[in-house]
């Protein structure tokens, strides 16, 4: 094998190794980003429609939040959200599931503003599409997270104003 071939193989092996390592042991920043994406997937998850499966799905979403949390979302044209109680959150998720119109939520372009071993602040763009409606609701959101029992949980969600 030529010398440069050996170097190339070594470089590729190093890159693949780094990627595998990154996938197996993700950084806290990556964990937080994955958590937000996973939460959006769980919000959008379609259940079989039964009360119990809806309740289980709503509880799964509520599990992303810590024991003390607050959600304050105030996007133009969208209903204002002000929730700080788990049962209130579950109730809201259940009523959203019950409504006939499907809502698709996405959390896009997460940007880590600050992160330490136990706290993180991430800004992302929240997008909600209601089927049958022309407008999509877009709002920039700031997520404050805390690590509880080695797991990241959401402590606060608030709106960031794109326009002043």
């Amino acid at each position: 094998m030529k010398k440069w071939h050996k170097h190339l193989v070594l470089l590729v092996a190093l890159l693949v190794g780094a990627m595998v390592l990154r996938a197996l042991i993700p950084s806290d920043e990556r964990r937080v980003h994955v958590l937000l994406a996973q939460m959006a997937r769980d919000i959008n998850e379609q259940t079989r429609g039964g009360m119990l499966s809806d309740l289980a799905a709503a509880n799964r979403v509520a599990d992303y939040f810590g024991p003390e949390f607050e959600i304050r979302i105030n996007a133009t044209g969208a209903p204002e959200l002000d929730i700080s109680d788990r049962s209130e959150l579950i109730q809201m998720l259940l009523s959203a599931r019950k409504s006939r119109r499907g809502v698709k939520v996405a959390i896009l372009d997460p940007q880590t503003v600050a992160i330490s071993k136990t706290n993180a602040v991430v800004e992302a763009t929240g997008k909600a599409e209601v089927s049958g409606e022309t407008d999509v609701f877009v709002s920039e959101l700031r997520f404050t997270l805390v690590k509880i029992d080695r797991r990241w949980r959401i402590r606060r969600v608030e709106t960031i104003r794109t326009f002043e």
């Binding site: 896009l108 372009d109 940007q111 800004e123 992302a124 763009t125 877009v138 920039e140 794109t162």
Partner: peptide, 11 residues
């Protein structure tokens, strides 16, 4: 085009 936290959604 006005970006949000990224360019996936812009105004």
């Amino acid at each position: 085009a006005i970006r949000t936290t990224g360019t996936s959604v812009m105004y």
